[in-house]
Design a protein around this nucleic acid. Sequence first.
DNA 1: ATTTATTTTTAGATTAATCTAAAAATATAT
DNA 2: ATATATTTTTAGATTAATCTAAAAATAAAT
Lengths: 244, 244
Amino acid sequence: MPLHFVLTATCNSKYPKGSNFYNMVLTHTEENYLKAIFKISEEDGNETATTNAISAEMNTAAASVTDMLRRLSDKKLINYEKYKGVTLTKEGKSVATALIRKHRLWEFFLVEKLHFDWDEIHDIAEQLEHVNSPELVTRLNDYLGNPRFDPHGDPIPDENGNMPVREQVSLLRLKPGEVGKLTGLRNNSDQLMKYLKKNSIGIGTKITILEHHEFDESLSVKIDDKQEMGLSNKVSKNLLVQTE
Amino acid sequence: MPLHFVLTATCNSKYPKGSNFYNMVLTHTEENYLKAIFKISEEDGNETATTNAISAEMNTAAASVTDMLRRLSDKKLINYEKYKGVTLTKEGKSVATALIRKHRLWEFFLVEKLHFDWDEIHDIAEQLEHVNSPELVTRLNDYLGNPRFDPHGDPIPDENGNMPVREQVSLLRLKPGEVGKLTGLRNNSDQLMKYLKKNSIGIGTKITILEHHEFDESLSVKIDDKQEMGLSNKVSKNLLVQTE
DNA sequence: ATTTATTTTTAGATTAATCTAAAAATATAT
DNA sequence: ATATATTTTTAGATTAATCTAAAAATAAAT
């Protein structure tokens, strides 16, 4: 079924009869661009998302991005000026957070109910997030018990797009003797998730810092009071933990 | 994400590297055409599906159907000869039944787990059925307890595409005094489902025949040993029941 | 402050999916 | 059996999403 606007004979509007920003029907592609722009805008101090950054994130040619930016701008989902990069409008941001909400709720479902491993779920959630039914999201959320964090430890936005915040710190920041409980990853790379799985490290795992090695900035740690192991700087930088 | 073939530089095949008929990636549209052809072929004694029948089922112009038939034929999913109508190949049939399997499993999920009413789920399942992940289907099926019939009473094909058969009979066939348990509808029209819901008739409802009225071929029935009511010929013809 | 490099946009094509209108093939009816 | 009606296909356009290659704008460097 094509997911684009239905244009009527009498009305040349871009929106179907009775539509508004909150029930606008977008193509999967448009949705994916909005998510990419949202993600880039969140990264460190990126004020605006540049064409090239979007093109890298989406794996498309820069020229294709320019085309799409014009379309999204026409639909008032982004603020766009030639050569200046883009920001999301209020409406664009609300579409993006709704998508992230759906993605993370489905990830939670896949792990909690269908017992997938957390490194197998991304691609499936990527498809499920485009299913368009507000009622479905509401019921799924209730069914799952209104979860606040997904299986990667990422916050699930609420119905209004507000992200719950959790005090997370990179494992690298802890001092020898301190203990952290893994609550998330800074980046959800497949390689990292495979590596962690192999070492039976997952969300909730208790990690005790044994030693900092100055030479390569790596760590020696103890996992769940069981095995001791070394963690490279790159790995430990990407592990987000909660202390207490 | 576009759901079409990935063509490689070295290979001009229509299928991605290492693909076969069982993991061929089709567009949503191609999938919907296959479903439509399957449905038409199942209807009474339709040997082949005609262009016009498909165009009616899909709500598209006949010319668009002709285009698509050529594409599906190129992919060996249908047997097509100009002006002769089409049949599904073994591969086409297997794609179609896999879609129906997913559709009905998701409908079961929506009703059993998320407590949707059975007249609200079709459009959502229509979207969910296109999510492509064999592992997801397997796990969903296990999670739901390997159900054999969906909430409309329609059979759910198994992993091999085999439909469970159930002895179903039109309510109209029962004689006064006989009792049937509603197991399905002959056609899943919204209007019929609304009507049944309003009269608290659903899958599993016990219906006792009180009287046949010759004049308009309508029935007087008793619902779940509670209220008595009349059912028009059109309604009772569409109610499929199991007797014993 | 020019030159060089990078980024972004335009221009022109392609593919999938759709349409309308007209032509060709098949089926029906007198 | 010929004329009429219906069905199906072709022809030609359109829109969304993509591409490559070239031009234009902006940023960086000497």
